[in-house]
Simulated assay, not measured.
Amino acid sequence: MSVHPKSRFPRSSFSATVTTLRRAGCVFAEDEASLLHEAAGSPDHLASLVGRRAAGLPLEHVLGWAEFCDRRFAVDSGVFVPRRRTEFLVAQAAALAPRRAVVVDLCCGSGALGLALAAAADAAELHACDVEPAAVRCARRNVGALGQVYEGDLFGPLPAGLRGRVDVLLANVPYVPTDDVELLPAEARVHEPRVALDGGGDGLDVMRRVAAEAPAWLAPGGSLLVETSERQRDTAVDVLRAAGLSIRVLVSDELYATVLVGTAGAGTAGKVT
């Protein structure tokens, strides 16, 4: 009996899964089929996984995990799935983080960003927060004893003792303009919380709130990192500049990612390089 690698099921079963996924519009049907077969514990379990994926549930929600920065993080149903392009943000944060950095992950979702950065930077402290209860529960499972996860709106639930001490502030805020949310793929639009997607009229409402408060939380020389779209770049730069931060714009053509780094207390507030 021919069995696909990493699968305990017959080759014919794997082929049938690929066909089902292709008919459902899955672009990477073979790769997804391999993961589903690896995860399934029985034919009935496999049928359930394939059925949920074919019905449009994000692959990460079906599997219960997402791969990010070469690690697997639990991602529960209804929790924002970390995007591969955001690995660029984490890489830039790791490059500038001092040793034993104090890291804060705002709008943390599953907690993947903060954990990936904390591991890369050998962080002394990791604090994360999200307004969505399902995300907080998921992040607490991922973070465990490696840090603290709080439930609440942006800086609101953070301990006051963090003010002026944060070396790296990750803020993967929602930046999709409200009118564009309905244009997103159904996987995001239907299965991820709107609060993690909708950034208001021009997409930058949450970023404005973060930028306005960030300087009070950053240590001297500490940095805020946010992701934005290419078309929002100039307005987003103005938002961070208005907060008195020194700004760098970093772009990855490979990942189609634009990251703004706003640094406090550098003596060059408002400068764009």
Results as ranks from 00 to 15, higher is better:
residue 268 T to C: 13
residue 75 V to A: 08
residue 154 L to I: 04
residue 36 L to A: 09
residue 249 V to D: 04
residue 15 S to K: 06
residue 152 G to K: 07
residue 138 C to V: 12
residue 98 P to G: 05
residue 232 Q to G: 04
residue 54 A to I: 10
residue 159 P to D: 06
residue 151 E to A: 13
residue 17 T to Y: 07
residue 75 V to R: 10
residue 217 W to K: 08
residue 182 E to S: 14
residue 120 A to E: 09
residue 45 H to M: 09
residue 197 L to Y: 12
residue 230 E to P: 05
residue 93 A to H: 05
residue 228 T to K: 00
residue 135 A to E: 12
residue 262 G to Q: 04
residue 11 R to P: 03
residue 273 T to A: 13
residue 149 V to A: 12
residue 112 A to K: 08
residue 173 V to R: 00
residue 91 A to I: 08
residue 224 L to M: 01
residue 203 G to K: 03
residue 55 A to F: 07
residue 140 R to F: 06
residue 9 F to M: 07
residue 203 G to W: 01
residue 22 R to T: 05
residue 157 P to C: 06
residue 59 L to E: 09
residue 270 G to L: 14
residue 253 D to Q: 13
residue 51 G to W: 04
residue 180 D to Y: 06
residue 18 V to C: 04
residue 26 C to V: 15
residue 257 A to S: 14
residue 135 A to H: 11
residue 1 M to H: 12
residue 123 A to M: 02
residue 160 A to G: 10
residue 241 R to L: 11
residue 174 P to D: 08
residue 196 A to P: 01
residue 194 R to E: 13
residue 96 L to C: 11
residue 23 R to T: 02
residue 198 D to A: 08
residue 170 L to T: 02
residue 48 S to D: 13
residue 210 V to G: 01
residue 166 V to N: 06
residue 41 G to L: 15
residue 75 V to G: 07
residue 271 K to N: 15
residue 40 A to W: 13
residue 226 V to T: 03
residue 273 T to H: 14
residue 101 A to R: 01
residue 59 L to T: 10
residue 94 A to P: 01
residue 256 Y to E: 12
residue 135 A to P: 01
residue 49 L to M: 12
residue 143 V to N: 05
residue 217 W to R: 09
residue 84 R to V: 13
residue 117 L to V: 00
residue 271 K to W: 15
residue 232 Q to F: 02
residue 174 P to M: 02
residue 168 V to P: 04
residue 234 D to T: 15
residue 89 L to I: 03
residue 103 V to Q: 05
residue 6 K to F: 13
